[in-house]
Design a protein around this nucleic acid. Sequence first.
DNA 1: ATAGTTTCGTGCGAAACAGTACATAATAGG
DNA 2: CCTATTATGTACTGTTTCGCACGAAACTAT
Lengths: 207, 207
Amino acid sequence: MVQNQPRPRGRPRSYDPAVALDQARAAFWNTGYAATSLDDLSAATGLNRPSLYGAFGDKKALYLKALEKSRAETTAALAAAMAPDEHLRAALTRVYEAAAGLYMRGDHGPRGCFLIGTAVTEAVDDPDIRAVLAAALAEIDAAFEARIRRAMEVGNLPLSTDATGMARVATAVMNAMAVRARAGGDLATLRAMGAAVVDLICGRAGR
Amino acid sequence: MVQNQPRPRGRPRSYDPAVALDQARAAFWNTGYAATSLDDLSAATGLNRPSLYGAFGDKKALYLKALEKSRAETTAALAAAMAPDEHLRAALTRVYEAAAGLYMRGDHGPRGCFLIGTAVTEAVDDPDIRAVLAAALAEIDAAFEARIRRAMEVGNLPLSTDATGMARVATAVMNAMAVRARAGGDLATLRAMGAAVVDLICGRAGR
DNA sequence: ATAGTTTCGTGCGAAACAGTACATAATAGG
DNA sequence: CCTATTATGTACTGTTTCGCACGAAACTAT
């Protein structure tokens, strides 16, 4: 990261917008969109309310930015975890292990996935939030399905496999792991869920 | 329903508490716990705020009653749907068909499952809500697992089956169907998810 | 009828909330 | 040094929210 850009004109920012966005997201992540006030966000980021408005717009715009960031990160992480050309079982196991670890982290206890944990509630009433959530789910489906089709081509799965359906089940288990994490489930249960669906998809024999 | 009880002393209620609870739950169901105000609940039930307090206590007590009712209903419906002694495939299919239909209903568009759609967000911060949610998930797991073990005994599934893991995957797909419904998924997708996991659990051959 | 009991509904007060106006501070350009 | 420009922080406004007090209403018991 070089900083060759000519300094902008006025008073410089005393904070990093990317860091502030992460801190705001952490606040939303714990208590959800509706229950997180602008004062909470102000406390979490260290910015006062006018600065928050200046940087991100109102509460919903800030939330949408955090949501969009989570969607992008999830898609990228999923693509990276499934890229290596090894057995499907290894790729899926890596994905679920990573998800379980991520979902169980959190300063105020496990908090699952940001999208599942906060956007699902708002999605019925808010079309913007619903659109991001739907896009994220579709991308996760697509990532799983592409990986499953590759396994079919290589001969790791029979050609008669219902790749679309299997991919949706794979996504379902990931989503449900996020639910369990927020519901107080322990890491062992989350990992077992992942292992169980991997066995179902890849066949238990290959263990 | 006979009404032989001696009428209570004072002014009679002008509403049915059970109906009011359902109406309040419907309000929570659409917008979630935090975003639903007492005025919203008052409008949904037709009761004014003091009557709501008198009947159910404060907002959280009312929500917990609605949550508990949903937990009980879910457990009962699941037990009923899986009771008949037929093939596992038929029982599971019936469960997922019922869930998909239920999740896609709603006056303001599909709203999924009350527990998944509203309690998951609150569960991190609120131990009471988390406890009900965890209990519900455990009961759903147990219902699936019991049914799977029965199929093993009857010879519909190999004795080496990981019943606990399979049951969790079955629960996962149900939870994820609730997520999809709120995210704008259509009925066909929800049904396909159910069919896919039924195929994975029962084997595709038995179709 | 009258008293006693429970519910209903208006309306109040305190707190939290979102959003903004305005004065102050910090920087670049001239 | 002075001006233009952008960011910061205090303070303010109007609204929403929760929870409850208090009097009116509806019913039973005597």
